[in-house]
Simulated assay, not measured.
Amino acid sequence: MISVEDARSRIFAGLRPMGDEIVALADGLGRVLAAPVVARLTQPPADVSAMDGYALRAADGVGGARLKLIGEAPAGRPFAGRVGPGEAVRIFTGSFVPEGADTILIQENADAADGFVTVRESPGQGQHIRRAGMDFAAGDVLLPAGRRLGAREIGLAAAGNHGWLRVHRRPRVAVLATGDEIALPGEDIRHGGIANANTPMLAAFIAAHGGEPVMLPPVPDDGAAIASAVDAARGADMLVTTGGASVGAHDLVLEGLSTEGFMLDFWKIAMRPGKPLLFGRVEAMPVLGLPGNPVSAFVCAVLFLGPALRVLAGGEAAAPQLEPARLGAALKPNDLREDYLRARLERDEAGWVAVPLPVQDSSMLRALAQAQALIRRPPYQEALAPGEMVEIIRLDD
């Protein structure tokens, strides 16, 4: 058996980002930039007002001064003239500051009547003016290649006048569940069968992590049937299988893969749950074989599939983020396997408290759905008492 860290490094070593494509700005959410976003304009393009009020010369803005209103400057319609001594222009937030003006008298500190404005409180020179280029200048790199696009990044690209973005293509990931006992959710299930939870769960996980899932029909525990399904998956950027990767007489994924020229990189990891995980390739297509138990499959997806999808989608190679938390219940000593316990999260004045779920069986999806985190325990960790510090992986979708 190899370690979790070693397994992840070996998976990363054989992955390359997808090629690039151009998408509309509105479709960029969650995508990873394949090229930097460079500002096509300066923002603000000129000195603009940060407040509603009056543009004037600071020298004229003394308390009690009465200035002549010579026009107004709504946002998008700059004042065409120049502000001279004893003059002011009505201005609004985002409006260009007229020539000759060097400060903004906010409307709360002014009285306007009969074509004049009276200063009640003097503004300082340059007050309430946003200078040209204060945010960015044309030619500035706004977003580097490799940046994942969220709402803030989309807004920044739009402000830089980009309607289209060059991003990495989403990896197409085929999902194949194996087992004589599994049936499509919603169908009548024969005696001895169960609903196939793994395929829709993993498809949702793949979509949430930047991939395009391709759900293949489940196949029985038959080497030839598995080989045929693997052949149908050719052309995908990655194949994920579930079940059949253990050592039982009906665990035939390796047999079916080998028929298709599978080259095994590793099999079995010193972790709980998820020991019988395998990784290799069918020609250029990476193949990640997850355990059949749904909780084991999901935990392995968090630890290996999510990070792999990040690399394929153009992001950096990184393990899931670990955060500190205090333990909410006692734990016995750990053995030689790295352990990942499902836990509820509570929060108090000192931070997060991770409470392990009382039953950690790897088939219990209801418990998994109730968990908010995984508690990571290194191999051979000693017994822990409530209140001691542990590392957690948040399970936010």
Rank of each mutant, 00 (worst) to 15 (best):
Q381I: 10
N293E: 00
A225H: 02
A159Y: 00
G315I: 08
G126I: 03
R31S: 13
R337K: 09
E187A: 11
P74R: 05
D361I: 08
D188L: 14
W352P: 02
V299S: 02
E255R: 11
K268Q: 10
E153M: 00
E283S: 15
R130H: 15
S258I: 07
D140M: 09
A297R: 04
R10Q: 14
V299W: 02
D60A: 06
E349R: 14
A371S: 12
E153C: 04
V117C: 06
S49Y: 07
M18G: 13
E316W: 04
A385H: 14
D188Q: 12
A383Y: 06
T242E: 04
P379S: 03
M263P: 03
A270P: 00
G28E: 02
K268E: 10
P291L: 02
V4C: 09
P144D: 14
A58P: 00
L41I: 13
R130F: 09
V311K: 11
D111V: 14
M215D: 10
G210M: 08
G210S: 05
D20I: 04
V219P: 06
P218M: 12
P171R: 05
R170E: 11
P324E: 08
P17E: 04
A46R: 10
D222P: 07
P74G: 12
R120S: 09
K268R: 09
G244S: 00
L67C: 01
W164F: 11
W267D: 01
I91P: 03
L368V: 00
A113Q: 13
A270E: 14
G289S: 10
P44C: 05
A197G: 05
S363V: 13
F279D: 06
A112P: 06
A297S: 10
V240C: 06
P45F: 09
L374W: 01
L156P: 01
E382L: 15
G292F: 06
A229Q: 08
V230S: 08
P213K: 08
M51Y: 10
E338R: 13
V117Q: 08
G256N: 04
V253F: 08
F79L: 00
P85N: 11
M285I: 08
V295K: 03
A50F: 12
E72A: 11
A313K: 00
A7G: 04
D265F: 00
L322Y: 07
D180Y: 04
T93Q: 12
L368I: 01
A284V: 10
A138S: 15
Y340L: 03
T242H: 04
L322P: 01
D237G: 13
S296C: 09
R31P: 07
P324F: 08
F96Q: 11
A233S: 12
M215S: 15
P98C: 01
L176C: 04
Q381G: 12
E316D: 12
A232P: 03
E255N: 09
G235I: 05
D251W: 03
D111F: 14
V230F: 09
V302I: 12
L56G: 09
G210R: 06
G28S: 14
W267K: 14
I393Y: 01
V62P: 00
A26Q: 15
L202W: 03
A26I: 06
P379Q: 02
A137P: 05
Q127M: 13
E346D: 12
W164E: 13
D237M: 12
K268V: 06
S9K: 15
R166Y: 05
V173N: 02
N293Q: 00
G280R: 05
A233P: 03
V173T: 15
P85S: 09
V97C: 07
A373G: 07
G150L: 11
